[in-house]
Design a protein around this nucleic acid. Structure first.
Lengths: 232, 232
DNA sequence: CTTGAATGAGAACACTGTTCGTGTCAAGGG
DNA sequence: CCCTTGACACGAACAGTGTTCTCATTCAAG
């Protein structure tokens, strides 16, 4: 991210960028399963082995694409939130629609991020930071709607005694001082959003509805009502 | 499924079964991305080309595994439902736990079914029938809880005018005569269940909670309350 | 100017899915 | 009973893959 010192590092950074771009185009065309290192090399008129100077394996390249996709969907959510005015319910609705739209525009990237983990298991450290971006958006909406110390306001039932401690890690980072039902509600809302878009994109709603956009909007409105987002 | 006529067909059916079994073991070991036709053949002491007498491609074999997995998770849900007594809320809770348990016990199968579609796009006709099994279970619980003609009972907001027509296809098959909010609620419940297990298995909750089983139970209870499942 | 590291190319290896031709063997018809 | 036909399994082959070497080139720093 910072400016490279010598010219050598500058051209290296640029070529790394070009590789990722080419890989992104390849991903959009054929999907993660069909993404071939050699095809990326062909796009760039390079020898396949030359790519190994920049990414130590195909999985490392995929990890870079995962980070890129997380950033992109996070940015889409942030932009929608920023342009949605002050009403929490409207902010949530705008973010949900933007996320769904991004998924429709980038189905392969979506599958890469929210579908099955491609390698044995994901490299956490690089990706979690980028993944946090979208969760921070939905947590921010909830956080603005229910200030610290207030009681649960939605239509969720009272949680068991252990709910607070169980959710302590995520609450500490994203929603400090809120009742556990609110934290769980935010988690549920995020899950419902990602889950709905995933099931739609992966074809699990095929034949279920005539107009899924309408059902999606109603679903997200319901979620907002359930967790108690103010409509004014 | 029916008894094969001649002995030739019988041994063929048995070998087909053995191939699927071997592929299942291979899938459980290395996952869908790493499932190799040749490895399956090695397990059976066969030449790789011999498998093509039984499955016309690797994707066809994967499709068979997908159907198998759908059946298995559907059966797990059915068994849990059957042994849960008459109370809808308890039935839902039992089904949800059983589905989550199955996912934990068969993560690769889960990813195969609910993760990213592996080939270009799935062969629908073979899989949708098997996929319907689990949805029928959750729809059955809702159907028993709210008889045809009754009004919406849960805590969901009133839907827009177009909601009914939009949901007509799924309503006709699974929940005829119920108000659209109920149909949408059942869809949301199913989505929340599949989405929560998927995000958990795919590692998206890592670091968020100390005891996810507890959060899961609370989430599913909340869903039941929201869509209005009776607790007695 | 020289040395050393970074870079790219090419060949090679061990895999993969898939196709094709050939031999084998059992069942059914004459 | 023989003989044909179909199904079967195999082995070789092809195109493609990720990855690892070795080798030459080039560019920047001492």
């Amino acid at each position: 991210m910072s400016a490279p010192a010598n010219a050598r590092a500058r051209v290296r950074a640029q070529l790394t960028r070009e590789i990722v771009d080419a890989a992104q185009r390849e991903l959009a065309a054929v999907g993660a399963a069909g993404l071939s290192l050699r095809a990326v090399a062909r796009r760039l008129d390079m020898a396949p082995s030359a790519l190994y100077r920049y990414f130590e394996s195909r999985d490392a390249l995929l990890t870079a694409l995962i980070v890129e996709a997380y950033e992109a969907v996070g940015e889409a959510a942030e932009r929608a939130d920023a342009g949605a005015g002050p009403v929490p319910e409207r902010r949530w609705e705008a973010v949900a629609r933007a996320v769904r739209r991004w998924g429709h525009e980038h189905p392969h990237e979506w599958a890469l991020v929210y579908g099955s983990p491609v390698p044995g298991y994901r490299a956490p450290q690089d990706t979690v930071a980028a993944a946090l971006r979208i969760t921070a958006v939905v947590a921010g909406i909830v956080a603005d709607a229910v200030p610290p110390g207030s009681a649960a306001t939605g239509r969720l039932p009272a949680g068991p005694a252990g709910l607070g401690p169980a959710l302590a890690p995520v609450a500490a980072v994203l929603l400090p001082g809120r009742p556990p039902e609110i934290v769980a509600g935010a988690l549920m809302a995020w899950t419902q959003l990602i889950g709905t878009v995933s099931l739609e994109l992966f074809g699990h709603y095929v034949g279920a509805t005539e107009d899924f956009a309408l059902v999606f909007d109603y679903t997200m409105q319901s979620v907002a009502a359930v967790i108690g987002l103010p409509t004014t």
